[in-house]
Design a protein around this nucleic acid. Structure first.
Lengths: 344, 344
DNA sequence: GAAACGATTTACACCGGTGTAAACGGCTTA
DNA sequence: TAAGCCGTTTACACCGGTGTAAATCGTTTC
């Protein structure tokens, strides 16, 4: 395997000049650059990445901690983050934490080893009380989601309240007045379920409609399709009239749609349904599902951008350090077959 | 940040002894080991991973190339591989290839850089004619799936034929005789669709039933839920009688179930349905879906084990090199609500 | 033509560990 | 007691690049 010294000898220049050419240092004469490049090609030289990382102290690898890739939302988020990172020449080391506290604590320790320059972290088991763990990490961290907040780290998240509110308003605008909320959780306070419920109730209140607890569908273990069907069944069994459904994620919505259809209710004629997350499944369900695109791609792009900026700041500490930001991605309602046209 | 030299000074031993302690070298006196460990703790020393990788030439990182994590099968596979790797102290760098030829070619080039010791590769765009690309890679590669085969690399895959055959037999055993196959693809020859179709037709032939082309549901772009519903509709529209469905993956099966139920057919009373892959969704669909577990966890474990063995061989070339293996994971039928009990 | 200056190029130390081979020490064997 | 041996520890070169600062070169300025 050829080394940089071999290339230098072959091209008749110093090792450092080869290094300069390969790392894009601007002050290299064109003729030199070409000669070096020719030698690189002739010898089939490829730079030793590990030596580069070791010496420069930067790996170009960022960590990504998510609970589980098998869950479509996180799988799709990971795809977006990987794509964004790749556009900037960064690689991504994924650390699934399995919804466990230990897994998440371990993920926070990973970067100290040195292989990873920074971390994008989507907690699910750590809670607000653990926020102090994020304070003095010694490496750049970008937080995702609504599990915990801290003024000392950058945070990228979505407009949960606005999204759920818009979803509810879409149904209200179509004249629906008996709108169920599917996906209530007992355990949460600041989490997504609570925020999405807040958006739902705000929309109703704005129209002077009181929240009817019979319309709240509880899904206590997890936001899976089966729980959506069960929660929908509970609501329908209560005897309350339902002409719209806001589900707190797409899997719940698909389960709810199943239950509605099983009972002979037509979607969207009898009941309009809106999900949340815009996972790929919602484009292929039957009927296709109106949902809230929480800006997953934007979240991925912004998270990677912020991390890159922090890594740059680290390199030249001269520049003014921007204080941590809280970024809310733009939310967008994606209308498909499961909702009626808006009344005009 | 403390270095190994600091620890050595603090413990009154040589740097190499510290290194020996930390890397588990057996011939170290207990007293020495304890003294070193105490110094490590006292100084809060953490080994510089990049220096270790650089000098040792091994990173402990393996690459994983899959088309897309957003697809539940691959997301879940990635979770399993990550878990298996972590159990052996390996980290995983994921490279989604986006179903593109370029993406897959790029993934094959990655390890040459040095950050990755070996690669687990699940091709989707490369075809059999590209198999020669795998011949002289210069690093250990484990191939997954049915897209291409090569006698020069290790390969871990699943019992597609047996699985589809068992799925079909399950329906036959329950007395069904008009079994549709959902998910036929034109473009494939050695791919999963063809193999699963082969299992389907073998099962029928074994009972002396001829394949009825009206029962074949074509899903040409991709195995998504919507295509499953459409293919199912095509079959039903042909007027042929249907009392069973073998879908070539779970998403297709869920789509097919939708279409059947929309037409008033009861599952499993009127029509039994079997999927393939055992993705988590199949446990939460309504009704829950009988499916073929292709041994995803086993595939992950075996792939990681094989890769580890190859990496060890690389370290001490003395040992006898085992020639490349083709491993077929054990398949298992998971019976759920969507199939009738077997006739006895 | 000398000085000044920016653009190029270079020498060399150094990053922080690990591999190798040799040194050391205590104990058994002859 | 000397030689042999094994378990333990060590010195030191070295992995292959990059950072720093200085040397060199070609122009421009005076």
């Amino acid at each position: 395997m050829a080394t940089m010294a071999d290339v230098a000898r072959h091209a008749g220049v110093s090792v450092k000049t080869v290094s300069n050419v390969l790392s894009g240092y601007p002050h290299v004469r064109d003729a030199t650059r070409e000669r070096v490049q020719a030698s690189v090609d002739a010898l089939g030289y490829e730079i030793n990445v590990t030596a580069k990382i070791f010496r420069s102290g930067r790996s170009g690898v960022v960590g990504l901690s998510v609970p589980e890739l098998g869950q479509p939302y996180f799988g799709e988020l990971a795809d977006e983050i990987l794509a964004a990172a790749r556009r900037h020449g960064l690689q991504v080391l994924i650390e699934p934490t399995g919804f466990t506290r230990d897994g998440e604590l371990a993920a926070l320790r990973v970067p100290r080893g040195g292989l990873v320059d920074g971390l994008i972290f989507s907690p699910a088991a750590l809670v607000q009380a653990d926020a102090h763990l994020l304070d003095e990490l010694g490496y750049p961290l970008v937080l995702l989601g609504e599990q915990m907040f801290s003024s000392s780290v950058d945070h990228v998240t979505m407009r949960n309240i606005d999204g759920a509110q818009a979803a509810t308003e879409l149904l209200l605008d179509a004249g629906r007045r008996h709108i169920a909320a599917i996906g209530m959780l007992h355990a949460e306070t600041a989490g997504s379920a609570w925020l999405r419920y807040t958006g739902y109730s705000k929309a109703l209140e704005a129209r002077g409609i009181e929240v009817d607890t019979r319309l709240l569908g509880w899904a206590d273990d997890a936001w899976h399709r089966g729980n959506g069907a069960r929660a929908m069944a509970d609501v329908l069994d209560s005897g309350v009239r339902v002409d719209g459904v806001v589900a707190f994620n797409d899997a719940l919505a698909i389960g709810a749609m199943y239950e509605l259809q099983a009972r002979g209710l037509a979607i969207p004629q009898d009941v309009g349904v809106v999900g949340f997350d815009d996972i790929e499944d919602s484009r292929y369900s039957v009927p296709t599902l109106t949902t809230v695109d929480p800006g997953r791609r934007e979240i991925a792009n912004v998270a990677v951008d912020i991390l890159r900026r922090r890594l740059q700041e680290l390199r030249r500490p001269s520049a003014e350090q921007v204080s941590p930001v809280l970024y809310l991605a733009g939310m967008r309602l994606v209308e498909r077959e499961s909702t009626p046209r808006r009344a005009r």
